[in-house]
Design a protein around this nucleic acid. Structure first.
Lengths: 360, 360
DNA sequence: GAAGCTCTTGACACCGGTTTCCACTCCCTT
DNA sequence: AAGGGAGTGGAAACCGGTGTCAAGAGCTTC
């Protein structure tokens, strides 16, 4: 019979237990093995869910792990695995609310997985951009990265990631990559919904302010809007489409430009809420009342949409939900099902900034 | 003469070099040691800036390191050091712009240091809050943590950190801890400046909307404001001080409450910009023109301050700069000097929402 | 010329996990 | 009862660094 304890070591063992129990030291895999009366390899098998462990043994080990609140050291594990348990979010989106919501969503999806989120803002126009990204990933041996727009739309980055064999998820408004690397956030559908809303209210002369052309979403939003109008038999006059930059200031300027046109549009659809806020201001300066004289709508449903007067009719983007799904997809834990794509679809939120045009 | 190369190993060596040169493998400390003809321990000494390395040797090793673009593996290093090179930002501040600016500031301060930022939003009211924080820190063996308000104001957290021996920096509006653990963001001074501004414009009947009482900044802002008024011989009527919650909605409600008072205040100072935006809306509903009929001012100088009409006179808080200083203080690299405290002092930004009261 | 010093350097164990390799059970055939 | 395959667990090497400690080189000192 082999005794599961080594009598010779009993003194040492009690010392060890004392140190553990007093909390002076965190439990290691060796402690768990000793306490469970198995080898550390077996404990390792349990941690890594190897099927080659007898049910009874597994249960016993899991009990000890739970009792001592043991959690394997991510660094040691990472060292052996040649990869860390860190997930990087590489972004250049300038909107704080988008960034924070995305972070929250990613953390939602990572909760309980043992992964941690490392944030990495970047500047795509920097000459060292790709080098920086590569350095970041290789040094930290990232498990994977999440790319929100507009980094997600940069093929150089995708190529780099494929090259160095790093897992990644691209979040974009159109499928740019294989399905397993994409979370698509249908901006086009959102813009269509807004188009239908405006047409439904009876607007026919509608101004549109595009976002930054460097974001795919700008084109998708415009495209979706135009789709809806065309389908309803309303023409989007190119003369009423002006180029904005997703900022309040650009919205103000574009709003003034649109309001100066004759005949004046009865509604203006800005590519995001900030620009819509700018349009509201332009309307005020022009002495127009919203929505009586002019309907103004935005896109995103960020906080600003509710903090202006009147509160903006806009398209809600489920950023956090998208983030959650992206993280889940990246770590693809067992028991992972793809997640309901319907939840990533933007939807219309009607507030007080839109109404039917005045009868002339 | 001792040959610095081991002839016996030359075949192996060329294999190794081939793997390295082809980029199939990143350089390790052993490679650098071999290439420089020293032991890995000496390379380690150079990496860790040990003074016990001959100048000539150090230069040679550094040259090899630079040539091969070697960077030590943070996980292996962390394992040996018993701590990681991760810095945690544990926060519960609900304002996205604050959070993002703080993150950017922290990253500014960490740039080039080899540390990475791990974000960790939390809920102080959760029953498992302290447990979660402890788990987060111990599992990741964090180098240190940054605590912005209001987590920074929680003594339970500070006690926990001291208990487990984790470095930390608390960012708060008052010194709550030893100087080395604090970055103080003088809200009081900012509020004083605003008080002086309003008094300087000739206001004497001023409404004040406080922030959430769970934030120290709320009290500091009120206190600073009251200081300035008192100093100028103006009394802050407690009847004109109402309790807000740092949200747009609360600003709207409090604004309406204040505007309903007789006599009506000639100016309203909201504890942050969002509430000020709410007050603007209340004023509009009441048919008042800002600033002709009513001066409205805020605090923070977040984006919303410029995206409302009229743009808000407010107090700018150098959040990013504060973050940078906090990170620098935490990692206290050599060549670190304390940073200019003056840069953390908020300052007045005068826009169009404030003016002298109408002569009655 | 040997002892004593300081300055450099390297051998070796170790951080806490995983993997490889192998031996040893079981259990089922033949 | 012997043979063989699958399941199970231990010993040792390894991941890529750091700490400990002692030894070698070069210079003084007596």
């Amino acid at each position: 019979m082999t005794s599961s304890k080594t009598p010779k070591k009993s003194a040492d063992e009690s010392d060890v237990n004392a140190a553990l129990e007093s909390g002076r030291r965190r439990a290691t895999i060796n402690d768990i093995a000793r306490l469970a009366g198995v080898s550390k390899k077996t404990v390792s098998r349990v941690i890594n869910q190897s099927p080659f462990v007898r049910e009874e043994t597994r249960v016993r080990i899991e009990a000890v792990i739970a009792e001592w609140g043991y959690a394997p050291d991510p660094q040691a594990r990472g060292l052996a695995f040649r990869r860390s348990f860190l997930i990087g979010m590489i972004y250049d989106n300038p909107n704080p609310q988008y960034v924070v919501n995305m972070q929250l969503g990613l953390l939602d999806g990572m909760r309980g997985s043992g992964f941690e989120l490392v944030v990495h803002p970047c500047d795509r126009s920097s000459p060292t951009f790709l080098q920086d990204v590569r350095m970041f990933i290789e040094r930290q041996k990232l498990f994977g990265v999440i790319l929100p727009p507009s980094v997600s739309e940069d093929e150089r980055v995708a190529d780099l990631l494929r090259d160095i064999g790093c897992e990644y998820i691209r979040i974009a408004s159109v499928p740019l990559d294989e399905e397993e690397h994409m979370i698509v956030g249908h901006d086009r559908l959102g813009a269509q919904a807004m188009g239908e809303h405006l047409v439904g209210l009876g607007h026919e002369r509608i101004g549109f302010i595009t976002g930054l052309p460097s974001f795919r979403s700008s084109h998708e939003r415009r495209g979706g809007f135009e789709d809806a109008l065309t389908k309803a038999g309303v023409k989007l006059d190119p003369d009423y489409v002006v180029q904005g930059a997703y900022t309040f200031e650009s919205g103000l300027a574009c709003g003034e430009a649109l309001l100066a046109k004759t005949p004046r549009p009865t509604a203006i659809f800005a590519g995001n809420d900030e620009m819509a806020a700018g349009v509201l201001q332009a309307a005020r300066r022009a002495g127009l009342t919203v929505p009586a004289d002019l309907t103004v709508v935005g896109f995103d449903d960020f906080q600003i949409a509710q903090a202006v007067w009147p509160p903006l009719t806009t398209i809600h983007i489920p950023t956090r939900e998208v983030g959650r799904m992206a993280a889940e997809k990246l770590i693809a834990r067992d028991g992972y099902e793809p997640g309901d794509p319907a939840k990533t679809i933007p939807y219309l939120v009607v507030r007080e900034s839109s109404s039917s045009p005045k009868k002339v």
